[in-house]
Design a protein around this nucleic acid. Structure first.
Lengths: 144, 144
DNA sequence: TTATCTGCAAAGCCTTTGCACTTAG
DNA sequence: CTAAGTGCAAAGGCTTTGCAGATAA
């Protein structure tokens, strides 16, 4: 319920590339979409295994790669060394506040910042494809 | 010639922590400071070995850790999976344009962006410790 | 049918760690 | 003298890859 668009995008990408669908890929996509958190590959694998215990880590990595390629998923590397994934479709672009205390991630957006990034790029002759802004600090809870 | 400040910072940090100086640490610091590029640990190791072939990779990693701790060095992880280091002292804070074509890194700064980041953090009860802005795209050369 | 997919285990990176020896202080 | 540093090699994480069997189209 509610992920028809994403599933369609994935299906079409798979078809376009001459690949095949599979139970595993569908399971991984659904779990990924359902989880409103920034997961590591390993965390995602852990949740997926509850639904389908035989799925291996390699399949999770391979599927995440496909999801990135078709624009449903974004990978980002944090300064703490972890690599996390979030879904993109149906989410506005945003940046992150990262709490170095408890690991909390808060999504934020400032249009002026976005515009000025574009401007910086243009000034240096760059054509932007994406960007990543992470603000590290401690959240209200961890400041106490 | 010119790195007295940095060496002093390092010396004092080492002393303060009850550690010792060494030929290797001095060599690594000097090469690191001399190189006006964002190096990987392995690249730094390669350059250091030209000066002192017996230095091992482990010592480079251990020294980079110290340099981060005393504020002379900043580590950042790019989306291409590499981890790079840049020196901080005597450099104003800046962000990066990253060319996904040739790997070029351009340092940029926009005070309004900086201010607005601070504002975003405050709005969410965060206390900023640092931040990381990377704008990915293709540079003028790679656009041709 | 047959090209793709899967799980597993092995292999690859990059980084850290344990150890015996060396060295700064 | 002795706590800390070093190089090496081994061990650790995380991710990718090779392979033989399974499966979608």
């Amino acid at each position: 319920m509610g992920y028809e668009d994403e599933q369609k995008i994935f299906d079409e990408y798979v078809k376009k590339m001459g690949l095949k669908q599979s139970e595993q890929r569908r399971d991984i996509l659904l779990v990924f979409l359902k989880t409103e958190k920034h997961l590591t590959a390993d965390e995602l694998h852990g949740i997926v295994k509850k639904k389908n215990p035989s799925i291996g880590a390699a399949t999770v990595y391979r599927t995440l790669k496909l999801l990135r390629e078709c624009g449903l998923c974004r990978e980002f590397r944090l300064n703490d060394g972890t690599t996390r994934y979030e879904h993109l479709y149906g989410h506005d672009h945003h940046d992150h506040l990262v709490c170095t205390g408890c690991g909390a991630l808060v999504e934020v957006l400032d249009h002026e910042i976005e515009k000025r990034q574009e401007k910086l790029a243009v000034q240096h002759g760059f054509t932007i494809s994406s960007h990543k802004l992470e603000i590290y600090g401690t959240c209200a809870k961890c400041n106490n």
